[in-house]
Design a protein around this nucleic acid. Structure first.
Lengths: 239, 239
DNA sequence: CGCGGTGTTGAGACCTGTCAAGACGTGTGG
DNA sequence: CCACACGTCTTGACAGGTCTCAACACCGCG
């Protein structure tokens, strides 16, 4: 049930069977979330972290005026609120974009886990640093990429991240976001997302229909995005 | 010499004298950096981390076309490349904005330090999560704040971060950045930075002259920025 | 059958970028 | 001591990207 999580970890480091068992035993509960259900509200004290099993989630921040920015998308195998382990409360919301299934891991179990396995401490520290790296790339996108490049970049990132957890088929993957969701990720309006998406379609780079994204020209999309997968740290090594 | 660092830590957690000594002993070397000198180049393998003692540094990412985005500013007491401890290489450059003095801490010393003091592991894990929180706030700025609000927000952030390390005087602080530097932080052009800065001046919110920024109307600036210091995690508690 | 969510389109406004030129201060070399 | 180069700041005119507002099509679902 945590398969995606171990695929993600083993893409980056070596995890022993012992460690895997210990991680699996740390789960205290399995929960279901409905689309738009908020898992963590900004500011709340929390003493558990949550591992995403199925579905897509997101982190988002709100402005006084009600404008919302999604700062990261979370896919199966991700730990959307692992950083609450040291932060104790979060500066952003965490919510479900789709129907989701999650595994709950109390912080006290994480304390035990990381004390018994110093290596896993570094692995999970690495995961929060990886989230930061992804956010950093988004910062670059928002600051310097055009709407078209931003969107292309987002599609490339999702493709690579889904691929390592076995959720792509050829060059396509299930894509549950609405255009309004994409707008909140890319710092644009949904109207402009619509037009930008049409530009990518007209350039024969992607097809998006029936909640499925197909990359028609991966080379072209990577180039349009100025995409370099380095920031996803896909190499396997001791962390 | 690491005073700013301990001020920063003790604002967020309780650090014992024992822990402080151990941290100080982890430093292997002191180095000077000239303005614009690159400390870490994206992609380089590294086995040391660097604690900033004096001066300002920054993390930046580059686009193929040469456009640059600064993703975080680093002030005295910061650990601009602590995340390399688990990442092993970085996805961004780290460079000196001004003349700087830094303390070098080899990763092997960090391994010893964190194994001997599990609490310090969480403290330094917390620090990388704090960097991520700051970056997340910048993502929100770039995605949803206007040029004016973005600039106001940056000034507020710097004010709070400098204040806890004792580098403000009343409502002012030394501000070494050029308008071109600000542009790279805020995802704008230097021409527009110039005009936006004039707008803040005309609104009697700030004065910027002789490399010193004075906040004339803190309330007004906070409001213009929609600033909320929560994301800086300024509360002192066990991490 | 009607409704809400989603996607699409058009027209015009506005924010920010581009390009170009000049002012100013500082440091350097002649 | 002056001439000059260079970095930084400033300003103007114009272009272009993205937003706003509004309307409508489409579809699944109650």
């Amino acid at each position: 049930m945590l398969d995606a999580h171990f695929l993600k970890l083993r893409q980056r480091d070596f995890i022993t069977a012992d460690e895997e068992r210990a991680i699996r035993r740390s789960v205290s509960d399995i929960r279901e979330l409905r689309p738009d259900e908020v898992l963590v509200r900004a500011g709340d004290e929390i003493d558990v972290s949550t591992l995403l099993i199925d579905g897509w989630m997101a982190r988002s921040k709100l402005l006084r005026g009600g404008q919302r920015q999604i700062t990261e998308l979370h896919l199966p195998g991700d730990f959307p609120d692992l950083h609450s382990f040291t932060l104790k409360r979060l500066d952003h919301d965490v919510f479900a974009l789709t129907q989701c299934r999650v595994a709950v891991i109390p912080h006290e179990n994480l304390v035990r886990l990381t004390e018994r396995f110093p290596h896993l401490t570094r692995v999970y520290w690495f995961l929060t640093n990886l989230d930061a790296a992804i956010q950093r790339e988004w910062t670059l996108s928002l600051g310097r990429r055009s709407a078209k490049a931003r969107m292309a970049h987002m599609f490339c990132e999702l493709f690579y991240r889904l691929k390592i957890i076995g959720q792509t088929r050829e060059n396509s993957f299930a894509f549950p976001l609405t255009q309004a969701d994409i707008a909140e990720c890319l710092g644009l309006t949904s109207v402009h997302i619509n037009r930008t998406l049409q530009a990518l379609r007209r350039a024969d780079l992607v097809r998006l229909a029936d909640r499925r994204l197909t990359i028609l020209d991966l080379e072209g999309l990577l180039k349009a995005a100025d995409f370099d997968a380095d920031y996803l740290y896909l190499d396997r090594r001791e962390r």
